[in-house]
Simulated scan of single mutants.
Amino acid sequence: MARTILITGGTHGIGRALARHYDERGDRVIAVGSRDADLSSLAQTRDLADRVSAEHPVIDALVLGAFRYQPRRIETEEGFEATFALYVLSRWLLAVSLRTSLDRAGRPVIVNLCGTGPGRIHWDDLQLTTRYRPLTAIMQGARAGALLGAAYASERTRYVLYNPVFVATGLHRPFRQPVRGIVRAASALFAQPAAEAVPPIAALIDDPPAERLTAYKKGKPIKVDADPGEAQRLEELVRSMAGHPGHAGRAG
């Protein structure tokens, strides 16, 4: 029976390779790229979720892969730091907005393509207004993924954190020369082709883990470090921010 797979970031890199894999298998694939929706916008994320849930009342898998490297701090029109908006707020909003459609599936799963390193939440300044660094924003987003995965409330849908490590996905594009050339050369020499990253991810989509929350690094299971108190605190903050665009994102 054909399944319905929603993939954000589905028009390039790993997302595109996954979309092609499931399309060739005969599944219904909804591949969302930046031309379809700007997922750093909560309004457009909500609109996408509404349209998808209306057209597809049952969703078997949600792959959260939309990401954009930001060399400098940029704010969205809604007043959020762009990495946090796309990497944290949008992914959380899609997951909770599509929960009903996911829970109707036989073996539903969310796969969050994210880092699994030792990032931390900057509780006093989630928007990194005074200390923005690209890596700081990315690591905070990865940590947020683990906490929000732990806070995700569903008895049926499994939540998987997956770090594909270094994959050839056009990472060089946001950089200026000469850094762009260096990153591009390193990618050509060391990065895994996107198609080779697909099989272990597809295996988790086809046969989701028994546990509600799991994490993998390049196909190998790793321990999930997600304190329940931190998870609840962040989920409450993100819920408030998503409901009130322009929230300053500071917590005592």
Results as ranks from 00 to 15, higher is better:
residue 226 A to W: 05
residue 32 V to M: 04
residue 201 I to P: 07
residue 94 L to S: 03
residue 225 D to E: 14
residue 230 E to N: 12
residue 76 T to N: 04
residue 197 A to W: 04
residue 32 V to W: 03
residue 180 R to Y: 05
residue 32 V to I: 13
residue 52 V to Q: 08
residue 34 S to G: 13
residue 129 T to A: 15
residue 90 S to D: 03
residue 76 T to K: 01
residue 220 K to W: 07
residue 13 G to K: 00
residue 42 L to Y: 01
residue 110 I to N: 06
residue 235 E to H: 09
residue 48 L to E: 11
residue 69 Y to R: 08
residue 88 V to T: 12
residue 174 P to D: 12
residue 111 V to A: 10
residue 59 I to F: 03
residue 219 G to E: 06
residue 142 A to C: 12
residue 182 I to W: 12
residue 24 E to L: 13
residue 227 D to H: 05
residue 50 D to E: 15
residue 30 I to T: 09
residue 134 P to N: 10
residue 141 G to D: 09
residue 88 V to R: 00
residue 97 S to Q: 08
residue 32 V to L: 03
residue 56 H to C: 06
residue 196 E to M: 08
residue 16 R to Q: 15
residue 24 E to M: 11
residue 96 V to G: 07
residue 152 Y to F: 15
residue 91 R to Y: 02
residue 249 G to Y: 01
residue 233 R to N: 05
residue 141 G to W: 00
residue 201 I to D: 10
residue 237 L to F: 07
residue 35 R to N: 15
residue 209 P to W: 09
residue 99 R to T: 11
residue 234 L to C: 09
residue 200 P to C: 08
residue 164 P to V: 02
residue 176 R to H: 14
residue 249 G to I: 02
residue 51 R to L: 07
residue 224 V to H: 08
residue 82 A to M: 10
residue 73 R to A: 12
residue 238 V to F: 00
residue 133 R to S: 15
residue 17 A to I: 04
residue 59 I to T: 09
residue 145 G to M: 00
residue 217 K to T: 14
residue 150 A to D: 12
residue 175 F to S: 11
residue 102 L to E: 12
residue 26 G to Q: 05
residue 97 S to M: 02
residue 122 H to W: 07
residue 245 P to C: 07
residue 102 L to G: 10
residue 95 A to W: 02
residue 159 Y to L: 07
residue 93 L to C: 03
residue 166 F to S: 13
residue 115 G to T: 09
residue 197 A to L: 02
residue 174 P to V: 02
residue 248 A to K: 11
residue 147 L to P: 08
residue 193 P to E: 04
residue 246 G to S: 05
residue 145 G to C: 00
residue 20 R to E: 15
residue 64 L to A: 05
residue 71 P to H: 06
residue 114 C to F: 01
residue 93 L to H: 01
residue 231 A to Q: 10
residue 55 E to H: 11
residue 136 T to V: 12
residue 237 L to P: 04
residue 213 L to R: 05
residue 108 P to R: 06
residue 116 T to V: 12
residue 179 V to Q: 14
residue 98 L to D: 11
residue 35 R to K: 14
residue 149 G to Y: 02
residue 200 P to W: 06
residue 237 L to H: 06
residue 115 G to A: 08
residue 100 T to K: 13
residue 127 Q to D: 10
residue 134 P to Q: 08
residue 222 I to E: 12
residue 17 A to H: 03
residue 183 V to D: 06
residue 49 A to G: 03
residue 16 R to V: 03
residue 201 I to K: 06
residue 119 G to R: 03
residue 49 A to W: 00
